[in-house]
Design a protein around this nucleic acid. Structure first.
Lengths: 190, 190
DNA sequence: CGTTGCATGTAAGGTGTTACATGATTAC
DNA sequence: GTAATCATGTAACACCTTACATGCAACG
């Protein structure tokens, strides 16, 4: 049999992970679910990428697809994880080293280059980012509220959502601290 | 005049940002500096990518290069930011919307899929990640110690380093909290 | 005399994005 | 009727990585 260790990307594993919860899902549904879960701690792939990735998983035998015609003429292609896919994922989870967290903090880059702009402008960027973070926090709290921490499968999803809530709260606290420091800088000397 | 708004990638802006501190730097030096600063809040690009990016910035007139022969035969190509590059960066900083933070938290993905493995195995992954985070924290503290918060230019770098320290400490606290929750799950029912 | 650090690049390939193209069904 | 949602995919391209290729200088 094949050993596509290298042939499944991190995103592929993430999507196969969504299928591992046992439901049969269309690409569209996978994307929506990714937007409600993966997005908060992992980049949610574009819609087009989801189709490509699911197709590849099916090609490797890790997922199986079938076309469902419900009522209308246009078919919906649904995917489910195969036994091979499940054991594949298990082994991946157990044996593959966890890569370091990849962060692209665009606001931090701008603060880093703060010498290039006026203090008020920089402050405005931070404030806008703070507002955006508040929004994210609200969404995450809603996600967490929809999960059951006692559930055998989705309990882990709850853990991650709970963690995400703490993470975003920490981010907001950091931003407030940063704003205070910027005010000291701007108000004082220079 | 060109309007290469679209032609400079985020990484390009980050590297141009390093040049904006005024020093004339070789590609090699840019890479080392990126590893000591950008790496903590933005992905540090590969060495080869640094050369490509600098070359592109020079092609756009945002940076200028010259070959320095110091002593030996092999030339070192050094880059400095041009006046155009500086005003380019300023406008970018002032006018370009800040994209949302992109996170790829590979450990969170594994916790999310925790139903696929044994509690002890999952715990081990978290512990390993915690150790790695401690290392990062140590490196960041060293970076911060080498910066002066009062410096007109590098004061902003200090702010970001200080923020990074708080960020990684928060991460460690989150991981400890997560470990406690995992123990409750594992030790109790199920 | 071998390894590490300085130094620069090319080639190939993987990963993912945006834009485009198409079309049905449902809700207002 | 028209807008939003469901639904699937292709094409072009941007971005970045790994592997490779080369070579000098300094240190032990």
């Amino acid at each position: 049999m094949s050993q596509p260790s290298r042939s499944v990307s991190a995103t592929g594993h993430a999507l196969l992970g969504l299928l591992s919860f046992g439901r049969e899902l269309s690409g569209y549904e996978v994307k929506r679910w990714a937007d409600d879960s993966l997005r908060f701690f992992y980049d949610a792939p574009a819609m087009s990428q989801v189709y490509v990735e699911l197709d590849r998983l099916a090609g490797l035998g890790l997922a199986a697809s079938r076309d469902v015609v419900r009522d209308g003429t246009r078919a919906t292609r649904v995917y489910r994880i195969t036994r091979r896919g499940r054991s594949w994922l298990r082994r991946w989870l157990a044996d593959t080293p966890v890569p370091p967290t990849a962060l692209k903090h665009h606001l931090a880059l701008r603060v880093f280059l703060g010498h290039l702009t006026e203090p008020e402008r920089l402050r405005a960027l931070v404030v806008a980012h703070r507002a955006h973070t508040e929004d994210l926090l609200g969404e995450l709290e809603a996600v967490r509220a929809g999960l059951d921490p006692e559930d055998p499968d989705f309990g882990h999803a709850w853990l991650v959502a709970d963690w995400g809530v703490a993470y975003q709260r920490g981010e907001i606290a950091s931003l407030d601290r940063l704003l205070g420091q910027l005010d000291e800088r701007g108000g004082g000397g220079r």
